[in-house]
């Protein structure tokens, strides 16, 4: 059977066994990411876009904006919406159809990482109080799934937001001039929120799993943080974590953030 579709048990056992000696199939250390490459402006009609590759995993994130009515409880603040689609072209595991749980969770975890970190300054996205505000759509698509889509999507969202230009807006008619952009960037905070997912395999923890490693993962914890301050968390899958294990992960958060930040820093200027 195709290795991409299902990971054979023999590989799963070997992955676990290797990790007890701190080794991985591709020679990485448990806390080491694969190479990250980033391309921006990959879709010119989008307000901003980014293609992120982590090893063989590839996602594309695009930003579109539209003027809309604000929510009643925050009449002078812009809004945001994150969606994710796991494209059938990106893996034999995905099928066309309405969103399944995996894509809903991906979108919601990224939504919270961006929203809770206050990365987008929504109060500066107001056009006319109570009437018109900007809505920022962050749309995530998988192009090739070789594990760790979560972290790749988070980086993609960051870079695409940094890369975005606000569209032109006709105040008299109250209409967005789609396709025409101002030279204004989105109002973003200086603090960079990065989500990093820790996976538990046997008694060991790794980051940035490949597809095969993700298949062996028994539980995962995604932590969104900014230079040492945690802003979002989500535990996934059915195995428990002990308090000690959780504390060990917490002690790693800042270093993991610095490590990923140094790899993507030049695309965040």
């Amino acid at each position: 059977m195709d290795k991409v579709q299902t990971t054979p048990n023999i590989n799963k056992e070997r992955i676990k066994q290797y990790l007890t000696e701190g080794k991985r199939f591709d020679g990485r250390k448990p806390d080491e990411f694969r190479e990250i490459t980033i391309e921006t402006g990959v879709s010119k009609n989008a307000e901003g876009s980014a293609k992120v590759k982590i090893g063989k995993t590839e996602v594309i994130v695009g930003i579109k904006m539209n003027a809309s009515t604000p929510y009643a409880d925050s009449s002078a603040e812009g809004t945001m919406m994150v969606t994710a689609e796991l494209l059938p072209l990106s893996s034999p595991r995905y099928e066309a159809g309405p969103p399944r749980f995996n894509s809903i969770e991906l979108a919601r975890v990224i939504d919270r990482a961006i929203r809770e970190s206050k990365f987008i300054k929504f109060d500066k996205l107001c056009i006319k109080e109570g009437e018109k505000v900007w809505t920022v759509f962050i749309d995530i698509y998988s192009l090739n799934d070789d594990g760790n889509l979560l972290d790749a999507a988070g980086i993609g969202a960051l870079v695409a937001l940094k890369n975005a230009k606000i569209p032109k807006y006709n105040e008299e008619e109250g209409k967005v001039l789609f396709g025409e952009h101002t030279d204004k960037n989105l109002p973003l905070s200086e603090d960079i929120p990065i989500s990093i997912t820790y996976h538990k395999i046997g008694d060991n923890f790794i980051v940035d799993p490949t597809r095969e490693e993700e298949d062996v993962s028994e539980t995962r914890l995604t932590i969104g943080s900014m230079d040492g301050i945690i802003s979002s968390m989500q535990k996934g899958e059915t195995k428990v974590l002990s308090v000690e294990e959780l504390n060990t992960i917490l002690d790693k958060v800042h270093n993991s953030w610095k490590n990923v930040f140094s790899k993507i820093e030049k695309h965040l200027k």
């Binding site: 206050k118 301050i229 802003s231 968390m233 974590l241």
Partner: peptide, 14 residues
Amino acid sequence: GKISHLQLDGKISP
């Protein structure tokens, strides 16, 4: 005393 579910929204130091 093991953790089977954990989520977080907001801002907090480790």
